[in-house]
Amino acid sequence: MEEENNLKGLKGWLIFIGLGLVVSPLRLAAEIGPMFYKMFTDGSFEYLTTPGTESYNPLWEPLLIFEASYNGFMILFAFFLAYLFFKKHYQFPKLYIVFAILPVILIPMDAWLSSLVLKNEEMFDAATAKEMVRALLGAIVWIPYMLVSKRVKITFVEGRSVDAEQVKTPEDKTE
């Protein structure tokens, strides 16, 4: 029981996860927010997606909408996970695993889709490769941690429904 009390809480390696959940959506918003804001307000989006313009490609519109939607979703998902993290909600570990897997799947998919539009560009440029390595390392480290850590199992229990067996008092269990 004492070991359980020592392991319970947002301590140890969980500090890094919490820090990442607070910093990553802010970093992502600061990096991509101005770019997408400018693109959708300065006429760039219309120029790329209007038939007859020099840079038109029918794949630009779905690609740009996908990228903006994906990044917006990941920002909101990170904030939601931070909420679950600090509430110590039992769903946090499972949803964090989903959060870690999504970039590993979607970054290469986005790079491939981009290569269909930007035929003269490398599919994995330096920035894309950096994000892919970051996503892979994060998944390799944190997914197993979420699955096997005693601290995770002991800490993230809030919100779980309690069954009748857990509610019984010691006197009730002797019957």
Rank of each mutant, 00 (worst) to 15 (best):
M1A: 13
E2W: 11
N6K: 15
G9Q: 10
G9P: 09
L10W: 09
L10V: 03
L10Y: 06
K11C: 11
G12W: 06
G12P: 06
L14T: 07
L14P: 00
I17W: 04
G18C: 05
L19K: 02
L21I: 06
V22C: 15
V23E: 09
V23C: 15
L26D: 11
L28S: 12
A29C: 11
A29W: 12
A29V: 01
I32V: 12
G33Y: 10
Y37G: 03
M39L: 07
D42I: 04
D42K: 01
G43N: 01
F45S: 00
F45Y: 11
Y47M: 07
T50R: 03
P51I: 03
S55N: 13
S55V: 05
Y56R: 00
Y56Q: 00
N57H: 14
N57R: 00
N57M: 03
P58W: 07
W60L: 01
E61F: 00
E61R: 10
E61V: 03
P62F: 08
L63T: 03
L63W: 00
F66H: 15
E67R: 06
S69E: 06
S69V: 10
S69K: 02
Y70G: 01
Y70N: 08
N71E: 09
M74A: 08
L76F: 13
L76Q: 03
A78C: 09
A78T: 02
A78F: 09
F79E: 12
F80D: 04
F80L: 14
A82C: 13
A82H: 06
Y83S: 10
L84V: 04
F85S: 00
F85P: 02
F86W: 12
K87I: 00
K87E: 15
K88R: 15
H89Y: 06
H89L: 07
Q91W: 15
P93K: 02
L95E: 07
V98P: 09
V98S: 13
L102P: 08
L102R: 08
I105T: 10
I105D: 13
L106W: 13
M109R: 04
D110F: 05
S115Q: 08
L116P: 01
V117T: 07
L118H: 10
N120G: 07
E121A: 11
E122F: 04
M123E: 08
M123C: 03
T128K: 14
A129H: 02
R134S: 11
A135C: 07
L137V: 15
A139D: 05
I140K: 05
W142M: 07
I143T: 09
Y145S: 14
L147T: 14
S149Q: 09
R151C: 08
K153H: 10
V157Y: 04
G159V: 09
R160K: 15
S161M: 11
D163L: 06
A164F: 14
Q166Y: 08
V167S: 12
V167N: 10
V167W: 12
V167P: 01
K173C: 06
T174M: 12
E175V: 11
